[in-house]
Computed example of a mutant assay.
Amino acid sequence: MGSYPFDTKIAVVLREDLAPWQRVNAASYLIGAITHAFPQLVGAGYEDADGTPYLATLGQPLFVFEGGKETLAEIRERAVRRELALSVFTHDLFGTGNDEDNRAAVRAVRGADLDLVGVAVHGASNAVDRVMKGARRHP
């Protein structure tokens, strides 16, 4: 990944068999969780030459990967073991309609048994790199 000037890293891994709309939905959900937990990752707002303001975005790069169901489970396990910040998106969440039902769907399943379609991890750059082992860069 070349020279990386940040101490921390954000990485998302999505299950390779998702439909495009599912990938976008899951990635957005996962990154929202990371930015909520770490508001310092958000940079300053934008403004164009006309003075129109725009919302701030992440102030550091986001790396997106893909992998199979087993790869996501391994990444979740490694992130939990290393006590890295972790957000999850399970297949069940595509069928829920609100945050309360989302939390209930995750709470109903043991961590090792979650039907993961995406996870996001934030932590020390080298730790995130090790956790993402086995995932491929998203095309």
Rank of each mutant, 00 (worst) to 15 (best):
N98G: 11
F94Y: 11
T96V: 15
L93F: 00
G68D: 15
G97L: 06
T71K: 04
Q22L: 00
V13C: 15
V131H: 00
R137W: 12
A27H: 05
E100P: 02
E83C: 00
V121T: 04
G123P: 11
D7R: 15
L14K: 04
P20E: 04
D7S: 14
A104F: 04
R136L: 12
W21Y: 13
G134Y: 07
G43H: 12
N102K: 11
R110N: 13
Y4W: 11
S28H: 10
P53E: 13
A104R: 15
M1S: 11
G97E: 08
E83Q: 14
L93E: 08
V109Q: 08
G134R: 03
P139L: 04
P39V: 08
P39D: 09
A127R: 11
M132V: 00
D115S: 13
G45I: 00
T90C: 05
G95L: 01
Q60S: 06
V119F: 03
F6C: 08
I10L: 05
F63S: 10
V80L: 14
L114C: 03
V117C: 05
Y54A: 06
D99S: 12
G134E: 07
T90Q: 01
D99H: 12
L30F: 09
A112Q: 12
G67L: 02
Q40P: 08
E16T: 07
E66N: 10
V64H: 09
Q22C: 00
T35E: 05
S125M: 06
V121P: 09
A11Y: 02
N98V: 00
D17C: 01
V119Y: 08
V109P: 07
I10V: 15
E47Y: 03
L41H: 05
K9H: 00
A19P: 01
P5V: 03
K69I: 02
A37R: 15
F38N: 14
D7C: 01
Q40A: 15
A135T: 10
G2R: 07
L116H: 01
G134F: 03
D115Y: 10
R78H: 03
V42K: 13
R81A: 14
R78V: 02
L41Q: 06
L84V: 04
A44H: 14
N102R: 12
T90H: 02
D17Q: 01
V80P: 07
D115R: 14
T52R: 11
A105L: 07
F6L: 02
V121C: 07
R76I: 01
M1N: 03
E16M: 07
A19V: 01
S3K: 10
E16F: 00
Q60N: 08
G123N: 02
Q60K: 11
V24K: 10
E16I: 01
G45L: 04
R137N: 13
L62D: 06
T35A: 13
G32V: 06
N102D: 11
A56D: 04
R103E: 09
A19N: 04
G95A: 01
V128F: 03
V24I: 13
